[in-house]
């Protein structure tokens, strides 16, 4: 564990807590894409298949349970909770996110570190996570006034993988045989997808004006 990865995990945790805070306290998911949340639930379900077979550390298992539990409960909240579901704008959240599953799965079958079920599912989760934010970014472009919590949620989500890239650079230089091109490239693609959001997010923060993504 290094400071970059810990910071990345804490940032990821913070993003989940901000979203849960928003949904649980003000009972609203305005501006939040259910499709992105469903993709994240699939990402964690396919990545943490080894949660009961490979024990890495208490921290690792605990965080996996938190990410699994929070992602599925957020999907449940938006789909089932009588108050929250009313604030979900399904007419705007129209990205065909299921179309992302097959290409990611096929790519995982073709490009992976080892052709085993767990490894292919792990690779699939990396490719899917890289594109899972797309429905949310599309929805943000359509959302007139993005509320602060939603903006902070997306910012933290983008920042966490950026911190992981620093972690991978650090591990590459400190652990001789540590080379994993697949998470590195998908993590880089994932972070680059946030580039324009980061730009407008900092602009709105610098000029102290409402966050607004151009359509």
């Amino acid at each position: 564990m290094n400071i970059f990865r810990l910071a990345g995990d804490m940032t990821h945790l913070a993003s989940v807590l901000v979203l849960l805070l928003k949904i649980h306290t003000i009972k609203s998911c305005a501006g939040i894409s259910l499709k992105t949340q469903e993709l994240f639930a699939i990402v964690f379900a396919s990545r943490y298949l080894d949660i009961f077979t490979d024990f890495i550390s208490l921290y690792n298992t605990l965080m996996k349970l938190i990410f699994l539990g929070s992602s599925f409960s957020i999907v449940w909240y938006i789909r089932r909770h009588k108050l929250v579901r009313r604030s979900y704008d399904k007419d705007q959240d129209t990205f065909r996110h299921y179309f992302l599953l097959l290409p990611c799965f096929i790519l995982a079958l073709l490009i992976n570190e080892k052709f085993t079920f767990k490894e292919v599912m792990w690779t699939f989760s990396l490719y899917l996570e890289a594109v899972a934010i797309l429905p949310q970014l599309v929805l943000l472009q359509r959302t007139k006034n993005i509320d602060n919590l939603t903006g902070q949620y997306v910012f933290l989500l983008g920042a966490y993988r950026g911190l992981y890239i620093l972690n991978w650079i650090y591990r590459y230089f400190t652990e001789p045989h540590y080379v994993h091109w697949i998470p590195w490239i998908s993590g880089l693609v994932q972070t680059l997808l946030y580039a324009d959001f980061f730009y407008y997010y900092f602009e709105s923060w610098k000029n102290n004006k409402k966050l607004q993504l151009p359509a």
């Binding site: 995990d9 990821h12 080894d50 490979d54 690792n60 996996k64 990410f67 792990w122 972690n167 998470p183």
Partner: peptide, 10 residues
């Protein structure tokens, strides 16, 4: 070996 086998990152 263990390290190589399983992925230690979230």
């Amino acid at each position: 070996k263990k390290e190589a086998e399983s992925h230690d990152e979230l």
